[in-house]
Write a protein that binds this DNA or RNA. Sequence first.
DNA 1: TGTTCATATGAATTATAGTTCATATGAGTA
DNA 2: TACTCATATGAACTATAATTCATATGAACA
Lengths: 101, 101
Amino acid sequence: MNNSTYHIFFTNLSNPLRIKIVTSLKQKEKNVTELSKELKVEQSKISHALASLRCCNIVDVKQEGKQRIYSLNKKTIVPMLKLIDKHAKTFCAGDCKGCGR
Amino acid sequence: MNNSTYHIFFTNLSNPLRIKIVTSLKQKEKNVTELSKELKVEQSKISHALASLRCCNIVDVKQEGKQRIYSLNKKTIVPMLKLIDKHAKTFCAGDCKGCGR
DNA sequence: TGTTCATATGAATTATAGTTCATATGAGTA
DNA sequence: TACTCATATGAACTATAATTCATATGAACA
């Protein structure tokens, strides 16, 4: 597999807001306004974040009336987050702190 | 698990050089000079990249004489890259192109 | 068809992360 | 202990990505 795909994919998930959206959608699908209210984040920020996530098919959309319902593509993301959980537990004493650079 | 760990972990892998190093170390462990020559990248760039990867325990180091041998922590990374391979194949027609934003 | 609610988009600004280069550290060896 | 090879580090600079805000689109409905 080519490195560029990895780079694009990881970059997409390397953002606090997008991660928040992902973990929120893990529970259940939501529309933009719901996400905006739940996360206390301005609507256009949510929309931009969702646009990125859609690019890599990390989330799916469906239209329902004037709402757009976003759902998580769990096939990839759920096992991936599990890998990180396990990694952090095993190698980073619970959670990864980064190294300030 | 807390979102900050996900963020730090993904950010670490969201960089072309660090990904190159990771995929190179998947084959076999290498020292800094070897990586620098193989990837045709200046030594300090490699060192900085390795420092980041070490923070999240994505790579390990051992000293051997004056060299430092870096190896990949395969437990997490190998299955993670496989997940992306499969994702790209299944959902992105082979490889993820991003969306130019 | 004009108004409202829901969401998306573009572009300028701002924040974050990466590169570069000069230099420091540190192991081995003459 | 002075020198060399291997690697690390800090800080200024540069590049990349995120935020903001004004505005566009588009569905529903009066």
